[in-house]
Design a protein around this nucleic acid. Structure first.
Length: 574
RNA sequence: GCCAGCGUAGUUCAGUGGUAGAACGCUUCCAUGGUAAGGAAGAGGCCGCGAGUUCAAUUCUCGCCGCUGGCUCCA
């Protein structure tokens, strides 16, 4: 964010607080920073609803017009405590600050603990360039254990035009919402009685999912992965051993008791793959093992965290584990990067952001494993990125999992939003917990490295993002329905059937639609359903044994069936 | 899980302290169409679930469930 805009946004937040203090003199105030689309301020003991927004805006505009100056003052902690004696949250914040001197800003009667900077005076702000947006609950200092305050969000930009642009963009994003498109295109649904966060795929969605799944798995098989398959539940003892029950229990579904033994739905696939690895003594000669599985896992996400397909409770990971020797580690990571890039560019998401998540060197005790393991793994990840040619990446210290450093990859969608989808991790926890080993060339037992990777992440999350990215306009090869045959009248019924049969023989996903509708109505339906090919057949076409082709809103004209098949196959190439 | 808002037909949404309406969709009939909505008729609702207030609750109150936006979380 540019510094100037940040100053403005931050200044709006002070004006908001000043106005709220006028309306609710008893209000206790928290913090009020600038954020990337405006600002917010946290309050306690207020009662603001959407109906009040207009009034708040009006009062804020008035203060802006009064041209009140922002006056900075450096005062002692003692004095600050006196000033904020009625604001317990501010007192706590003063207490948290290092040093004896702190700065406060005064605007009219309103005084706030604040390091600034601000605009010179409220008159520097555009009274039309902000908008009170929404309210929400927010924990004081972002800590779940603290009290919840009421947060008021505002949008703020340099001028009204930018604000309007932002609102327009947000509307566009709403239009692309995968939950909405999923409903309109009949891809998937949720049902109260089935349970929260458990998607049901309707025929078109299930086809889309299958096509995506086949594409991913075929790619892995071509890259010398082997496919494996494991059950959905396992004895609790397995999760005890893997450490999930200790570290992850609250995200797992509760136990099912069968024959006096407790079983759990799997939140991850790793332990199963490890068990298969351990089913016999392994030699260094047989490494690396690359085992892939479309593994459906269940995680008990808190109800408020659920969100359509991007955050469900049951989902299928395009998971794989690579068990390898130390000297193979870097190449294996590089290969995973290569496949990731191939998959995303094939799907039309070229823009990827690579993040190397390493441990926080100041908090080594928070992480599992030895220094040597960490150094080796972090280096392997970093070197893999470099030799892959990805010299641009973000190094995130402290973002590693407690058991492993990783490369996380964000995909950037058509609206410029970033979504973390892929992850490539080097796991030490599991290799030692399960005492995994192989016999090296010296005849000694050695612990292998294990790379855990999910490139699409999960089919659900990826599909959610992909639906928004494409606005439901999938490439021809991924379209669950590729073509509609639209007969002009019932007279073309048998010809339409004939065309359908010919296309089905070529494995083209096609159906006959619009028999009881006018042509334009059928075209309209086909376009709203985002069917790539609309094939009109009337008496003319029947006579010349052709179809009249419309491709994504564009009339192509008459085409023989063979030419059409060729065109579809051409456009279906990945 | 927490804060706030919402829950009415398959869908999108009006509406009301005296048990409901539109559009699209669906069914039937008419129309036999030439590239983004042809016409008519009909069916379809425990107004999310449970309790309370009331002569009377879809409407008011409370609880539960679900959805939405945030917060927290996503080892």
């Amino acid at each position: 964010m540019n510094k100037n805009l940040e100053k403005k946004r931050h200044s709006y937040s002070h004006i908001l607080a000043a106005v709220i203090k006028d309306i609710f003199p008893e209000a206790k105030i928290g913090i009020g920073p600038a954020i990337d689309n405006g600002f917010y301020y946290d309050f306690k003991d207020i009662d603001v609803s959407e109906d009040d927004f207009k009034e708040i805006e009006k009062k804020m505009r008035k203060k802006i017009k009064e041209d009140l100056s922002f006056e900075k003052e450096i005062i002692s902690k003692k004095k600050a405590k006196k000033i904020f004696k009625d604001d317990p949250y501010k007192l706590e914040l003063v207490e948290d600050l290092d040093g004896e001197e702190i700065s406060v800003y005064k605007t009219g009667k309103f005084i706030d603990l604040c390091k600034g900077p601000h605009v010179k005076s409220t008159g520097d702000l555009d009274p039309q360039a902000f908008k009170i947006d929404r309210t929400s609950g927010a924990y004081f200092k972002g800590d779940e254990k603290n009290e919840m305050m009421q947060r008021i969000y505002g949008l703020a930009f340099e001028n009204k035009k930018e604000l309007d642009n932002y609102l327009k963009m947000r509307k566009e994003a709403e239009k692309r919402d995968h939950r909405k498109i999923g409903k309109n295109l009949e891809l998937f649904m949720f049902d109260e009685e089935v349970g929260q966060g458990l998607p049901l795929y309707l025929p078109k969605g299930a086809m889309l999912r299958k096509l995506l799944m086949d594409f991913a798995m075929d790619t892995y098989l071509k890259n010398d992965y082997k496919i494996v398959s494991t059950p959905h539940i396992a004895n609790e003892e397995l999760w005890e051993r893997s450490g999930h029950l200790k570290h992850y229990a609250e995200d797992m579904y509760g136990p099912l008791t069968v024959d006096e033994k407790k079983y759990r739905l799997k939140p991850m696939n790793c332990p199963f793959h490890v068990k298969m690895y351990k089913s016999k003594t392994r030699s260094y000669r047989e490494l690396p093992k690359r085992w892939a599985e479309m593994g459906t896992v269940y995680r008990y996400e808190k109800s408020g965290e659920l969100h359509g397909l991007t955050r469900p409770r049951g989902f299928t990971q395009d998971d794989a584990h690579i068990i390898c020797r130390g000297d193979q580690l870097q190449d294996e990571i590089m290969n995973a990067l290569k496949i990731t890039k191939y998959i995303y560019s094939t799907l039309g998401m070229e823009d990827l952001i690579f993040k190397l998540s390493v441990r926080d060197p100041k908090k080594k005790e928070d992480y599992f494993g030895t220094d040597e393991q960490w150094e080796k793994a972090e280096k392997a990840l970093e070197e893999a990125l470099k030799s892959f040619g990805q010299t641009e990446y973000i190094r995130d210290e402290g973002e590693a999992a407690f058991y492993a450093p990783k490369i996380d990859i964000d995909a950037v969608d058509a609206m410029g939003r970033k979504w973390q989808l892929s992850t490539i991790q080097v796991d030490f926890n599991i290799t030692s917990r399960f005492e995994m080993s192989y016999i090296n060339s010296e005849g000694e037992e050695e612990t292998p490295f294990m790379v855990h990777r999910a490139l699409l992440g999960s089919l659900e999350r990826f599909l959610g993002v992909y639906i928004e990215h494409t606005e439901g306009m999938f490439p021809v090869w991924l379209s669950p329905v590729q073509a509609w045959i639209i007969p002009i009248s019932e007279k073309q019924d048998s010809y339409a059937q004939k065309v359908r049969k010919k296309l089905r023989e070529k494995n083209i996903r096609v159906s006959i639609e619009g028999i009881n509708e006018t042509l334009s109505k059928a075209i309209r339906n086909g376009e709203t359903q985002k069917i790539p090919y609309l094939l009109v057949v009337g008496s003319k076409e029947e006579e010349s044994q052709s179809v009249n082709v419309r491709f994504r809103g564009e009339e192509i004209g008459e085409m023989s069936i063979d030419d059409l098949v060729q065109d579809i196959e051409e456009k279906s190439k990945k």
